[in-house]
Design a protein around this nucleic acid. Structure first.
Length: 981
RNA sequence: CGCAAUGUAGCUCAAUGGCAGAGCGUAAGACCGAUAAUCUUAAGACGAAAGUUCGAUUCUUUCCGUUGCGACCA
């Protein structure tokens, strides 16, 4: 007889290299390196070669600053898609991109230059562009480092750049395609203009400062018969009253805008009749001192002759106050009551908004000069008015302007006021202080002025079978696309319906030049697709910098002459393309130039701001190139806000930096957060939220660790117990007829159900459902129930016993499937767990495929066990009461005496032997009685030293006097195995 | 101000024209063989008002809060 074993050492305690402490700060970079060294991304591509493709096309983030929480979220969600589709068996490549051109980089570079005392204008454009290129490059590198740190797999060493030679070439070619199809036209459009620097300014380049302008109220005599408005007005002299702070735009007045829904009043003022908004009658009359005092010196409210909706004024005609020209009355929603709906400042929406609350000024009728205001321009387009701008580059009236030709506009203000005062059209004028846009460079007031621009028409029709416009085709395509969430379709449709023609030219330097020439002799524009393609060929070799490095002769085909006058002398267009055109062309420039991609993409995923941005510009580009949308489905996510739902601002101090979170807690935390929230709405992020996520992460990790620890000594190929629910553990010959224990079957049935839900979640991009399902499975099914119940069995029975092998078989299946299901989200941890599965052969979980759902009907099993667990809840409550009464401590000190009705007793009969394990007590008795009752008694017998259960048999065994009957058997088996080996 | 989205426990999410579920967190307790872990129990919510209805958290309207777009910036 051998020596008795040391009891403690015969207990099968968990053992694994999968550590409890994640130490993600170090572990993640190490794993990233491992992935890179093993060329994991390339291996995945290889493994999926030939499979159906699933293309997520990356919207390029702007390569200017560090990544923020929103871009991190965006990239993580994209990674969920790519990784999960890949695990579904698709070939899902990911080519990240960067948007490199644009104003913010120019601004940044210009400021840097200024710090060195240099001026942008002193440098050749080519040099300036070189610095911009370098800056973009540098910012991009930083972003690439941060994005890949998040565990996002893709072609990071070869992303697409909108400033690359190939891309710039394709962008130019696409412009040629628009041109070829007849969508492009040249027209006028008002932009901010600095008359001092003689340059166009972007909104971002103006600063608002207080400025004093003349505020004037002017009459426009109505030419249309006033009887059409109201019979009361028949035969009266009626005028419309407008208000403006820019008298110099009056010569350019072509119309008057009124709101169709507002009420307007025709009011008697002396022998004439004035029309202003009803609400503003009192204000205007007081302001302009129009109500004559009566004999007592009191002023009365004027007599209102008629009231009517603004829509009644639509298309009536008025006369310009001092030019022999008609002014058209138009209906516009932009008109406000007592707001600054004035030519120059109204375009700034936030400004106008502020004004509405504070100052009252105006008449409810808006002086409209299409060449000098944004809203004016838009409404004039609708009414077919000319974009009239009689002001030159230096801010002087052109020769066609009567009275003021050659005059500086600001100086002319006073003269114009004087002229109107003389001819009686001026009601009132005063000085008015307001916030007014100024040039950020020279700090002088800027104006709004129409300049020549390139447009893409939304309504010109081109061939597509029958003729169709971009707008109409876009609306058709929007219906074909699948939108998540589905209100996206309406939003996109509305946007397309309401949008004006696309102005694609910008008076800037850092972008793709509009590849058009002008004949020096006759000024004829040469906008020809063949020439553009010739230029694009040069771009393909040298980048678009060639446009600035080379003279016209080297950019044009040899011996090219002006088709109109045969001159050989040309000049280059100086405008560049809108950066939205750049990024929009990615559907061609990237999807069609990379071997592993294809047009259209399966999915685009961006923030909701991109309806108006990239989704839109991409759609236009896709339509120009192929008459179809460049995406089959579009997913949008909300904005990241703080814990209170407020927007994040660096200055407010509520911003969360992704890099900080990654450094402190790990990328996994950010990834898990992205999965846990409803990304279709505003997404909250705060320290509290993240700390909850950290807790959840720990739960996932500890659960995986426990499972892995108990798989010690298990080889699924030789040790598994046969069961139809098994996919990854093969099991022995069925002739051995060993069946899994019931609880283990129950756990696997649950796993099967979870697998189905999770796969459905991945399929529908519902990561929150994936998270909730898995988290619930881990916390409730596994940790609180299954693992707690099988702990005794795993620890106590002999290592090779059926009892332990049965549990291990289930555990293996659970851990394997759980790792795979978690992999797209917990990219690092799932991989680590997968790696620690004994006898697992794949190099990474990311090469694996998702598990399949067995299809077995386990509903009866699951229902029965739900009933068991509800009885268990009752038992646990009773145990807790006993504990509180200090009658027991550990539940193993207890014996449960259940009383139940006949049916329940019968139901419990087959589980009788298992109940003590399910309840985790030492003994259970069931008695038939009336209702369900639970009585807790002290367990019978003594505590077994080995398994801690109580048993009346402790002391019966000679060799091991301190153990129970189960342990005695287990110890015998362990001794036999030891002897055999 | 328009257009759109959204509002359920401290947090993240469910469900439903008929008792509002879960997990985490919190509190209390147990265990000391998942141990900076694990288990148990407990308390805790429909933004406000009106309407439709036998009955509304759910449908309608209004209000309030928040966010995005309306910006030629991305």
């Amino acid at each position: 007889m051998t020596e008795p074993l040391e009891l403690k050492k015969t207990v099968n305690l968990p053992k694994t290299d999968f550590s409890q402490k994640a130490n993600l700060g170090q572990a993640e970079p190490a794993r990233l390196k491992k992935w890179t060294d093993a060329k994991l991304y390339e291996k995945i591509r290889e493994a999926r070669r030939g499979a159906t493709k699933f293309i997520l096309h990356d919207g390029p983030p702007y390569a200017n600053s560090d990544i923020h929480i929103g871009t991190a979220l965006n990239k993580i969600l994209k990674d969920f898609i790519v990784k999960s589709r890949s695990m579904m068996g698709y070939d899902a490549p990911y080519v990240p991109g960067y948007d490199c051109h644009g104003l913010p980089i120019e601004t940044h570079v210009e400021k840097k230059l200024a710090e060195k005392g240099k001026n942008k204008n002193d440098l050749p454009v080519a040099t300036f562009r070189k610095i911009c290129r370098e800056h973009a490059s540098k910012a991009m590198d930083g972003q690439t480092r941060d994005f890949s740190r998040l565990g996002i797999l893709g072609e990071w060493e070869n992303p697409y750049l909108t400033m690359s030679n190939e891309y710039e070439s394709e962008t130019a070619r696409l412009f040629g395609r628009f041109l070829e199809r007849g969508y492009v036209y040249k027209g006028l459009r008002p932009v901010y203009w600095c008359i001092h620097d003689q340059t166009a300014l972007a909104e971002a380049e103006v600063e608002y400062k207080l400025h004093t302008s003349p505020s004037i109220y002017v009459k426009f005599p109505l030419l249309t018969d006033p009887a059409e408005l109201d019979a009361n007005l028949a035969g009266r002299r009626v005028s419309l009253v407008i208000w403006t702070t820019t008298p110099w735009t009056i010569p350019a007045n072509l119309g008057i805008a009124v709101h169709p829904d507002y009420e307007y009043a025709a009011v008697e003022a002396g022998d004439e009749v004035l029309i202003v908004a009803s609400e503003l009658v009192g204000f205007v009359f007081v302001k302009c001192c129009l109500s004559a005092p009566d004999e007592n010196g009191e002023r009365h409210l004027p007599r209102i002759l008629a009231k009517f909706k603004g829509s009644k004024l639509d298309r009536m005609r008025a006369k310009h106050p001092f030019i022999d020209r008609e002014s058209l009355v138009m209906n516009g929603e932009h008109v406000t009551l007592g707001g600054e709906a004035d030519a120059e400042t109204e375009i700034d929406v936030s400004e106008a908004r502020d004004k509405k609350e504070t100052g009252k000024a105006g008449t409810g009728l808006v002086h409209t000069a299409p060449g000098h205001g944004h809203d004016d321009f838009v409404i004039s387009k609708q009414y077919g008015l000319e974009v009239y701008c009689p002001v030159d580059n230096s801010g002087r009236f052109t020769s066609e302007v009567e009275h003021f030709a050659g005059e500086n506009i600001f100086k002319a203000n006073a003269q114009i006021v004087e002229l109107m005062k003389e001819n009686g059209s001026l009601l009132f004028s005063e000085n008015y202080e307001h916030r007014y846009p100024h040039c950020w460079r020279c700090k002088k007031p800027v104006i709004f002025r129409a300049t020549p621009q390139w447009f893409i028409s939304m309504d010109v029709e081109a061939e597509k079978g029958e003729k169709i416009s971009l707008r109409a085709n876009a609306l058709e395509q929007v219906e074909q696309v699948k939108w998540h969430p589905n209100w996206g379709e309406g939003r996109m449709g509305n946007m397309i319906k309401g949008r004006p023609d696309w102005c694609v030219s910008r008076q800037r330097s850092w972008g793709v030049p509009i590849p058009v020439f002008y004949c020096q002799a006759c000024d004829e524009p040469v906008a020809d697709t063949k020439i553009i393609n010739h230029v694009a060929d040069i771009f393909a070799k040298e980048t678009a910098d060639a446009w600035y490095n080379r003279p016209e002769s080297e950019l044009l085909p040899e011996n090219f002459t002006c088709p109109k006058c045969n001159s050989r002398d040309f000049r280059k267009e100086t405008d560049i393309l809108d950066v939205w055109f750049d990024s929009g062309s990615s559907c061609v420039a990237v999807l069609e130039t990379r071997d592993n991609l294809q047009f259209p993409a399966d999915v685009y995923l961006e923030g909701g701001d991109q309806y108006r941005g990239w989704f839109n510009s991409s759609l236009m580009c896709g339509l120009a190139a192929h008459d179809t949308a460049p995406y089959k489905q579009v997913i949008t996510h909300g904005w990241v806000v703080d814990g209170e739902g407020k927007q994040m601002h660096k200055s407010t101090g509520n911003a969360i930096s992704p890099n900080e979170v990654v450094g402190k807690s790990g990328a996994e935390i950010l990834r898990l957060w992205a999965a846990a929230v409803d990304y279709t709405q505003d997404i909250r992020c705060s320290d509290e939220i993240l700390s909850r996520i950290v807790d959840a992460y720990r739960k996932f990790r500890n659960t995986l660790r426990y499972a892995l620890g108990n798989l010690y000594g298990f080889n699924p190929e030789t040790d598994a117990v046969q069961n139809p629910l098994l996919q990854y553990s093969h099991g022995r010959e069925t002739s051995e007829i060993e069946k899994l224990l019931e609880v283990d079957r129950w756990a696997l049935a649950n796993l099967d159900e979870v697998t189905a839900k999770v796969l459905a979640g991945y399929e529908t991009f519902d990561y929150q459902a994936v998270y909730q399902t898995l988290y619930n499975f881990v916390t409730v099914t596994l940790s609180a129930r299954y693992f707690d119940i099988i702990k005794d069995r795993l620890y106590i029975y002999a290592p090779k016993s059926l009892e332990r092998r049965s549990a291990q078989t289930a555990l293996y299946e659970i851990t394997d499937k759980l790792s795979r299901l978690l992999a797209p989200i917990l990219a690092f941890t799932a991989d680590e767990a997968f790696e620690n599965l004994p006898h697992q052969k794949l190099a990474s979980v990311h090469l694996a495929e998702f598990p399949v759902v067995s299809g077995a009907d386990n509903s009866q099993l699951l229902t029965e066990w739900e009933r068991i667990f509800s009885i268990r809840d009752e038992v646990l409550k009773a145990l807790e009461e006993a504990r509180n009464a200090k009658r027991i401590g550990s539940s193993l000190e207890a014996k449960v005496v259940l009383t139940a009705d006949r049916e329940t007793t019968r139901f419990l009969l087959p589980f009788y032997e298992d109940l003590r394990y399910i309840f985790i007590v030492s003994q259970v008795e069931v008695h038939e009685g009336d209702a369900l009752g639970v009585e807790i008694r002290k367990a019978d017998g003594e505590k077994c030293e080995r398994c801690w259960n109580y048993s009346i048999h402790v002391g019966e065994y000679e060799k091991y006097p301190t153990v129970c009957e189960r342990c005695s058997t287990a110890l015998q088996q362990i001794e036999q195995s030891a002897a055999a080996s």
